Simulated scan of single mutants.
Amino acid sequence: MKPWHFIGILLPLLGCSHGSPADEQIQTLKSDHEPIVIKKVPAQIQELAVPKPEMQQQRAKNVLMNVPLIKQNPELKYGCEVTSLAMVLKYAGADTNKMKLFNEIKKDNDPLKRSANGDILSWGDPAEGFVGDMTGKRAGYAVFDRPMEDLINHYLPGRAVNLTGKDFETVLNHVGSGYPAVVWTTGDYRLPDRWESWTHGSEVIKTPLDLHAVVLVGFNDTTVYLNDPLSGRKQVAVDRQRFIETWKAMQSRAVSYR
């Protein structure tokens, strides 16, 4: 969640502060709920392995990955995006952590300007880089998919997958193939109800205040499972349809790798 007016009062609401796994396993569920364990294998072997049709069908319906949980606090009050990405990259076997990503993610350093009554007049563009101060020493907001995609390609050259703007079934199919995804939502996974706007050059940025990023680690017919860097909870179960509605309201943003 990310604050705005009267920074001294509402600062805790800004951004997402409102509230090596090479052997990690992907769990899929049979109809009788007995877990099937699929061990991760090197990419060159994955490319040669062709799963049986029945396995593909099961995997598309029920998936739960043991993605390592990383908490954004106390270092990165508004760092839900890079902390979520750290989880995904760790799962992929990359040698990184949230603080490395904090230093490496592109920043939009346009200063925050407010009116006399505290309204935001101008600030940065999260589509270009992280806006504000991720540590929380000053006001911070968020970063969107493109700078995150660039960072994935830095660690996994040519393997970034930007799923932004796709339908949610496409995201689920990608996750069902064994690749967790960073997805944008709200702090309570419900529809955003607080919006703000400001200018950035000749553009007007309009965005919800309670923006948050988490890792989509699994799903079934009724539920999605999330690693949440803010609450510090792993494999949080959230109603699938409710989550989809919120994800769409947040402009259907998601990034992963292949």
Rank of each mutant, 00 (worst) to 15 (best):
V224G: 00
R190C: 10
K113M: 04
V67M: 05
W4F: 12
K30Q: 14
H154I: 00
L112M: 07
H212E: 05
L112I: 05
D188E: 12
T186E: 07
V182I: 14
S31Y: 13
V131D: 05
L89Y: 10
T223Y: 06
D133L: 09
V217T: 15
D228W: 04
M148S: 09
A49W: 15
R242C: 02
N162V: 03
N66Q: 15
N62P: 02
K206R: 14
G129T: 07
L76P: 00
I26C: 07
L151I: 12
D239C: 01
E47M: 10
L13E: 14
V236C: 01
Q251M: 12
I205C: 07
N103K: 13
S231P: 02
R233F: 09
I120E: 11
V214L: 06
C80F: 04
E245F: 00
G136M: 06
V215W: 01
G8A: 12
G178F: 06
L172V: 08
T96M: 10
A139F: 10
T96L: 08
D228M: 01
V182M: 06
I26G: 04
C80Q: 04
C16R: 06
A22E: 15
G201I: 08
R190W: 01
N103I: 00
L13K: 08
I9V: 14
G19H: 11
Q46R: 13
N103S: 12
L64F: 09
V217H: 07
I26M: 14
G201H: 02
N103R: 10
L64W: 05
I244N: 06
A181D: 03
H174S: 08
P3T: 06
S31W: 12
A86R: 06
Y189C: 09
K71R: 13
F6Q: 13
L101P: 03
H33P: 00
G187F: 12
A142H: 14
W184C: 07
M148F: 02
W198M: 08
D167G: 00
D133R: 04
V50P: 02
N97E: 09
A127C: 11
N117C: 00
V238G: 04
